Computed example of a mutant assay.
Amino acid sequence: MKKKIAIIGTDPRLNFLQQSVSEYLDTQLYPTMTWDTELRETIFAYEPEVIFLPIQPIQTDCSLELPPSCQTLFIGKTNESIDRESKKDTIQPFYYLEDEEWIWENANLTAEGFINYFYLYEKQAIYNKKFIITGYGRVGKRLALALHHLGAEVIISVRSELQLYEAKSSGYQIVTLDNVLDQQGEDAYLVNTIPTKWLNNEYAASFSRVFDLASNPGCLLDNENNIPLNYSLSTSLPGMYFPQDAGQLLARSVLKHLAF
């Protein structure tokens, strides 16, 4: 008999996750981002051994209590309620956003998604444009490579001396994050991959456009008021443009962890 998995969330990737694991698991998809009494009763009645929570933390209208049948809990971003349930002795938590294979493959999709996003909203070629990428983690590296192959001028900006010279050894121009504003101008696009607030709103307005690929709250120091017109919070690009590929990527992470 197949194990049961309850997949919770509204992200379009989850439809393809469900399809991809259905050969191995009995699946139910609950398209909601809120844990309420109705969802709780439905999942308790289903008695899944595996529960997959959405990437963004699920909101709670009642106490988040998982059924006794739950043995494995797949967690994206967490919160206090999720943390409390994941600490139960009967539940094995798996933080799929920390799966190294998923991180690198998702970085590839993010880089390709950004290119599509740029074409759609800028309606310009990437060739011969200047892109300053802040951050040189997985997404920064994959994006730098993709833009470079399309003929862009790529500048990497980080605080880490190790990453700075790693980027230089790969053939990119470099500038420290403290001096990145020296590169500002109407001909420069800033692409942020650093998941923290570091950029003054006034300085952000001096670039041609700021594309923020980092998760909420983004890179702006003041992201509630006076948001520059040239600022775009461009998150969840894999789910936006490639839900099938991104969903199948999640499925591989799930099946690998469950040893299928």
Score class of each variant (00 low, 15 high):
His149Glu: 13
Gln184Val: 08
Gln244Tyr: 01
Pro68Asp: 14
Val154Tyr: 05
Thr196Leu: 06
Val175Ile: 13
Tyr203Leu: 14
Asn223Cys: 06
Ile227Phe: 01
Leu120Gly: 01
Tyr136Met: 04
Ala259Met: 05
Phe242Thr: 06
Gln248Ile: 02
Thr37Arg: 04
Pro93Ser: 13
Ala259Gly: 02
Asn216Leu: 12
Asp83Ile: 10
Lys141Arg: 14
Leu213His: 05
Asp61Trp: 00
Phe211Lys: 10
Ser169Glu: 14
Gly113Phe: 08
Thr134Ile: 02
Ile43Gln: 02
His149Gly: 04
Ala214Ser: 15
Met240Asn: 09
Gln183Arg: 05
Ser206Val: 01
Ala188Ile: 08
Gln19Thr: 13
Glu65Arg: 11
Gln244Ile: 12
Tyr96Ser: 10
Ala125Ser: 13
Gln163Pro: 03
Pro68His: 07
Phe242Ala: 13
Met33Lys: 09
Asn79Ala: 09
Ala188Gln: 06
Ile174Pro: 11
Ala125Trp: 02
Phe44Leu: 08
Ala204Asn: 04
Lys130Met: 05
Phe242Lys: 10
Leu66Trp: 09
Val21Trp: 03
Ile5Trp: 01
Phe118Asn: 07
Gly76His: 11
Gln19Asp: 14
Ile55His: 01
Phe114Val: 13
Ile174Tyr: 05
Asn200Met: 07
Val175Asp: 00
Trp102Ala: 03
Lys256Asp: 15
Asp26Met: 04
